[in-house]
């Protein structure tokens, strides 16, 4: 809706001081959007794609400059179909920047990329930030949000659950640590164990998770209660954004 793809059922959307209803073209000229998947012709080259999309705007940045920004200069004249997934995403990112936008929307830019490609895309996003643009990034990866965002909001089922800085949200949650019991295969039902321990326990996949303020005090009690439970490993970890998300939504991550 903010990108202007879906008209709102009710209310107004104002962006950069402009109204979507009346000034759609002006807004489109000042925002940059990278959609979840960007489909281009198989046989267009990155340089041509940037020139073409640049021609749609009154003001555009040069293809060479953008290719340099997303580190695709050596692939500038290769056909789109020959690029790797990470390179395609970096090109999509460059396309979102072609009009020198003040506001950039990135929709799950690293979904489906290998760790190296993700890291190199993160570098590009940091560079865009450093150029002084506002980046609105949606992601399912909490580590990505933690690494890239200055401010973040957690949405679930179209409702805004919370907003703040990553660190602030983690601290706000007041569960600094989580003890994990890892099982070989599917974790058994934790309810009997939770009753013995006198603490809530969440079971998911091959893990039991026990949130705690004080791991040092919990661990001996926990080990005793876990006598006879066929767990494989035990970890203590500091709470992350993922815990904030799970705590707020009460469910596991999903689409």
């Amino acid at each position: 809706m903010i990108e202007g793809l879906t008209p709102p059922d009710a209310g107004d959307i104002e962006i950069l001081g402009l109204d979507w209803k009346r000034e759609a073209r002006a807004i489109r000229g000042r925002i940059g959007v990278q959609l979840q998947s960007t489909s281009l012709f198989n046989k267009i080259t990155p340089r041509e794609a940037l020139d073409l999309y640049g021609s749609y705007y009154p003001r555009s940045r040069s293809a060479a400059e953008l290719l340099d920004l997303v580190q695709l200069t050596d692939k500038a004249d290769a056909f789109h179909v020959t690029l790797s997934g990470g390179q395609m995403q970096r090109l999509a990112l460059a396309l979102a920047l072609v009009n020198d936008p003040e506001l950039v929307f990135l929709d799950e830019p690293t979904t489906g990329l290998d760790p190296q490609a993700r890291r190199s895309l993160w570098d590009v996003v940091r560079r865009i930030k450093a150029e002084g643009r506002t980046v609105i990034l949606t992601t399912h990866y909490m580590d990505e949000a933690e690494a890239l965002c200055d401010r973040l909001a957690i949405m679930d089922h179209g409702r805004l659950l919370t907003a703040g800085t990553p660190l602030g949200l983690i601290q706000e949650l007041a569960i600094p640590s989580v003890v994990e019991l890892a099982f070989q295969g599917e974790a058994p039902d934790p309810s009997a164990f939770a009753a013995r321990l006198g603490q809530p326990v969440t079971g998911r996949a091959d893990l039991w998770e026990i949130p705690t303020q004080d791991p040092k005090a919990l661990l001996p009690v926990l080990l005793e209660a876990a006598e006879g439970v066929p767990y494989q490993q035990i970890h203590v970890r500091r709470a992350t954004l993922e815990d904030v998300f799970l705590h707020l939504t009460g469910r596991s991550l999903r689409d």
Partner: peptide, 8 residues
Amino acid sequence: RRLAVTPL
């Protein structure tokens, strides 16, 4: 969709 977010 990609074209729809441009002013073209």
